[in-house]
Design a protein around this nucleic acid. Structure first.
Lengths: 204, 204
DNA sequence: GTCTATAGAAGGATAGAC
DNA sequence: GTCTATCCTTCTATAGAC
């Protein structure tokens, strides 16, 4: 496990992540990953044994990165829901701007192989964050601050509006270009527009 | 072009649509399509020449079906925006319940091959419907009925919340099952909840 | 129009030299 | 640890019989 080994293994991992995210499991070729890593095809097998194992290594790390951020500040007891919503959109859209292929990649691979999701969502942290959010929302409904849309639906609504335009980027970008709009600029605007939209819908 | 030919061609088309929607272009196999159609593999080539041609035939029809419905009543001059929003969610979610694989399929294939979208969105009808909606929204903003979120963002928000849970069904369904909820039941609820949510956000 | 058989290419994986 | 060469399987596509 000297320096060289780590370096090569990481080069492979990085190249694989890029290719898999862009082309998906089925559309990716070991040759292309090797090319992008600047090494030989058989080295992929030396380090990861098979395409499937390489894919799973990439998937689980990449997916964890995606959800880790969300969970972290959702669990923060010092922010109220309104602050969390503002914070979420700002942080999450910034993350998506840096990782534009991630949403479509995760959505797809999980749809095709539902087993992939289990390892992710069965963590303590995740269950904890979820329960905390549900309680917090219930209190705001109880006190009459917020309308009751049910936690699961509020969650879907909030996440949909930030993730969907990235997941369906091909379609959204095309429509925007026809209108003379720039995709990234518009996503920038959504960081402040979406909290307004959601909070207007929520407030009693 | 007798009856038998039409029948076989249609059987192939239907089988191809099912397989492509479920597995995507890269994940689909000509053998599997032939099996599902109950015919021989070489007949696929007899009718459609190549996998690519078969795919494009399926894609363009299936995609048109998806957008045709939307365009149709968006262009209706006898409904106000509020009615259109209610109508849209009821009709569109019903359509998605019958075609659960469609959103992820379209999103993906267009992301991978942006050329696919051009043929779709360059129709007269589409441009017409879009302009009509923009004018209608502008009038409602002008008269002080609705807040101004910009047409493109309002459009994205509305569509996101109905399409996303179907596109990301693998993830959403998993979370719902953990909560003891049934996916289809919850989508049923969204037909009435989403208009409420959006109109609450919109109304001045 | 439909089938069987097979060509031809490509991809994943392994053997073996260095 | 990294490379070249190659095996084996799978997939698209075509030839040719009926």
């Amino acid at each position: 496990m000297d320096n060289k080994e780590l370096q090569t293994e990481q080069k492979i991992f990085k190249a694989a992540a890029e290719v898999f995210e862009e082309k998906g499991l089925d559309g990716s070729r070991m040759q292309q990953i090797a090319d992008r890593a600047g090494i030989n095809k058989s080295l992929l097998h030396y380090y990861y044994r098979s395409k499937e194992k390489l894919f799973k290594a990439v998937f689980s790390l990449v997916a964890k990165n995606m959800f880790k951020k969300m969970i972290h500040f959702f669990s923060d007891p010092n922010m109220n829901l309104e602050e969390k919503i503002r914070f979420f959109y700002r942080e999450h859209i910034t993350f998506l701007q840096k990782n534009p292929y991630l949403p479509a990649f995760l959505i797809n691979e999980i749809n095709r192989n539902p087993d992939l999701i289990r390892q992710l969502f069965e963590s303590e942290e995740f269950v904890h964050a979820r329960n905390l959010m549900k309680e917090q929302y219930a209190r705001d409904v109880e006190s009459g601050n917020f309308l009751d849309y049910r936690p699961i639906h509020l969650f879907i609504n909030i996440v949909s509006m930030s993730v969907f335009p990235f997941a369906a980027r091909g379609i959204i970008q095309f429509i925007m270009n026809e209108e003379g709009l720039d995709f990234n600029e518009e996503m920038e605007k959504r960081k402040t527009m979406l909290p307004q939209f959601v909070l207007k819908a929520l407030k009693n």
